[in-house]
Structures are given as structure tokens and as C-alpha cells.
């Protein structure tokens, strides 16, 4: 009933992507991944500890779930490029979620450095998913540079404030011929459903599930919300009207 979506030659059925930070244990994370039905999870390369099997997050991600390494912690394009190369050298493949944040107060991305890193990484053969503040000019430049998707924020990361940038994201959906994945800000399942109804390809979130009272139950709620949003998008929402149809039409005299 729902349609799969693609990043280049990779096909996914779930339109939910989750992060792996902030959980009370890796075991809870594993249960969340299973409950959410996700096929793509993002992992901060800086947190991966290959020397310590009990604490290595990669050992808790079920097979069949694809890893999306991210460059969290990078403050410049150069740092992001180094982290991406490290991810590839560690066997994580060419897919990279590019984050360049030089703002520790709001954690807002640096769009210019992100563009610079994208240009470098695309030339090196990476499949780049850049995380940006939603801006049409930067999204066009990222698309020209060869980004595989655009990941605009809905609100500052970790804020759970919802889809505050909706009007800007709507423009990206209309104008950018790439998957648009809302990354950051979504705090409630209803907001995830709203984003997908709007026409974004997928949503990515972490805090909303990881810090919920019952993360596993919340993961299930998001799974259903994203499915509902996608079905609504496919079904085609009815038009919204402020009033009932006018009983005395102004053009009635034309009949």
C-alpha cells in the first residue's frame, strides 16, 4: 500500500530514520530499532569504539538495518571530511550524513562549510546527505554539487519543537529534485505525520524517542505515525476551506 523510496540505488520501505544517541543503554536502542521498523539508523562516528565490544554501538544494530554514519562533532568542512574518511576506512561504506556545526548554543548547522564538505566528499565518491538549515539557495547548490538528498531541520536539534520551518521545507519539496528528509526538531508522532503528509520523503529523529518515558512504545508510535502520514499523502488530502460553500455565489448571475 505504501511506496518505497530511494537514495541513489538504495531502496527503503520505512520512511523513519532514527539516531542512536541519548539512550540509557545500547539494549534499549536495539529494542527501539526493532519496534520502529527502521531500515536506516545514524551513528556518530566519534562515538564508535571499535576497541570495546561491550560498548561498541555497532554491535547493537540488527543486521538488515543499514548504517548511516554521521559527522557529528565536526566544526569545519575539513573535520567533517576527515570523519567521513574514517567512517569509510572503518568499513561503514560510502553513505554519510554530513553535519557541520560550529554553534554549541543552538547546534545550528553551518550551511557554507556543509557545502564545502559536500563538494569534497562527492568528488571522493561518497553518497552525501547534508544536514542544513532550510534554505533554497544552499539546497540548489548542494544538489548541483552532487548531494544525494537534502536534510533540512524542522527546528533546532534536540528541541522537540516540531515542524517550525514548514514553509521553507515546502519550498524545498517543490523545487529540489532530491529526497527531502526532515532532520531534527520533530518531537511528536503527529509532527512526523504532518511532515510526511506535506510531502517530505522521510523524517529523522532521535531525542523524541530516546528521551521519552517509554522509548520503545514511542518508537512504535512514530512508526505508525509515519505510515499514516505517507498513506494520507498518497491518498491526496482534501482541500481545506475556511467556510462552507457559499450559498449565494457571486458568479451565479452568469448562468
Amino acid at each position: 500500500m505504501t511506496q518505497p523510496w530511494q537514495i541513489r540505488d538504495l531502496t527503503f520501505n520505512s520512511r523513519l530514520i532514527i539516531g542512536t544517541g541519548k539512550y540509557p543503554s545500547h539494549q534499549v536502542l536495539r529494542e527501539v530499532i526493532e519496534a520502529s521498523g527502521v531500515e536506516l539508523v545514524t551513528v556518530a562516528v566519534r562515538r564508535v569504539d571499535l576497541d570495546f565490544p561491550e560498548e561498541n554501538i555497532l554491535n547493537y544494530i540488527p543486521t538488515g538495518c543499514r548504517l548511516l554514519p554521521n559527522t557529528s562533532g565536526a566544526r569545519t568542512a575539513e573535520e567533517a571530511v576527515r570523519i567521513a574518511r574514517l567512517a569509510r576506512a572503518s568499513g561503514c561504506g560510502d553513505l554519510i550524513k554530513l553535519e557541520v556545526v560550529n554553534d554549541n548554543k543552538y547546534l545550528l548547522p553551518d550551511n557554507m562549510e556543509t557545502l564545502r564538505a559536500t563538494e569534497i566528499l562527492v568528488k571522493e565518491g561518497f553518497t552525501v546527505l547534508p544536514y542544513v538549515s532550510p534554505d533554497l539557495a544552499i539546497a540548489r547548490r548542494l544538489a548541483e554539487a552532487g548531494a544525494a538528498a537534502i536534510m533540512p531541520l524542522g527546528a533546532p536539534i534536540g528541541s522537540n519543537r516540531g515542524l517550525k520551518t514548514k514553509e521553507l521545507i515546502r519550498i524545498l519539496i517543490d523545487e529540489i529534485p532530491l529526497p527531502i528528509i526532515v532532520d531534527a526538531g520533530i518531537g511528536r508522532p503527529s509532527e512526523a505525520a504532518e511532515a510526511i503528509e506535506l510531502g517530505v520523503t522521510a523524517v529523522m529523529l532521535n531525542t523524541a524517542i530516546a528521551t521519552a518515558g517509554d522509548p520503545v512504545k514511542m518508537a512504535l508510535a512514530f512508526r505508525h505515525a509515519v505510515q499514516a502520514g505517507h498513506l494520507a499523502y498518497l491518498a491526496g488530502l482534501g482541500p481545506v476551506q475556511e467556510t462552507a460553500a457559499a450559498s449565494s455565489p457571486l458568479t451565479g448571475f452568469l448562468q
Partner: peptide, 16 residues
């Protein structure tokens, strides 16, 4: 830390 419902983080950066 686990007993308090939290996860100890051993690695959070790598001076690349």
C-alpha cells in the same frame, strides 16, 4: 551510572 538509568559514555570524540 547504569543503576541510575543512564549510560556511561567512554568515547565521545576522536582527535582525527
Amino acid at each position: 551510572i547504569y543503576g541510575a538509568g543512564y549510560q556511561p559514555v567512554y568515547k565521545d570524540w576522536q582527535g582525527y
